[in-house]
């Protein structure tokens, strides 16, 4: 076995109707690696939220591209979602974005996407460079199940 990183890169129009294509690719790669159904579902949500942000905030009304790179490591999947648009701002930079300690009338949804990414992946980092787009890198470790092949 070599420890080289294998990369799969897809490039898509930054449009909402292409985000499901990212999920399909993720499913293929993650299931091939042996991730559990639950872990794959978690990653689907996280990667889609990153793509949603690029679709919604990166390019305004202009057309743009979202690039998604899957890096297959021996015991980890790392996913990078990158756009080249304006940087988006985090809706809720501090404090609680979840609804747990809020009354119905006070709740807002801003920031839930980021919260979900961070809650569902092992690691998430977000880089914003003014005018040079946004890069979200997230990873999940592969937990081997008892039944080893």
């Amino acid at each position: 076995m070599n420890a080289e990183v294998q990369r799969v890169v897809i490039s898509l129009p930054a449009k909402a109707e292409y985000v499901d294509i990212v999920r399909l690719n993720l499913y293929g790669i993650a299931s091939k690696m042996g991730f559990s159904y639950e872990d794959i579902e978690d990653m689907k949500v996280a990667v889609s939220e990153a793509c949603n942000n690029s679709v919604l905030y990166a390019y305004g009304k202009q057309d743009g591209i979202v690039e998604v790179a899957f890096e297959v490591l021996e015991d980890m999947l790392s996913i990078t979602v990158r756009d080249e648009g304006e940087s988006f701002e985090r809706n809720s930079p501090s404090g609680s974005v979840t609804l747990h300690d809020k009354e119905l009338l006070d709740v807002e949804i801003g920031g839930l996407g980021f919260y979900l990414m961070e809650a569902l992946m092992d690691e998430v980092s977000i880089e914003n460079a003014a005018g040079r787009g946004t890069k979200v890198v997230m990873s999940k470790r592969l937990m081997r199940s008892e039944e080893k092949v």
Binding site: R23, V45, S48, V107, I109, L112
Partner: peptide, 19 residues
């Protein structure tokens, strides 16, 4: 089969309106 934060946001706005 799947819902994202946009979908959850819509459910939340329905909750608020009905409430």
């Amino acid at each position: 089969k799947y819902i994202d934060s946009t979908g959850i946001g819509i459910l939340l706005s329905i909750l608020k309106a009905r409430h």
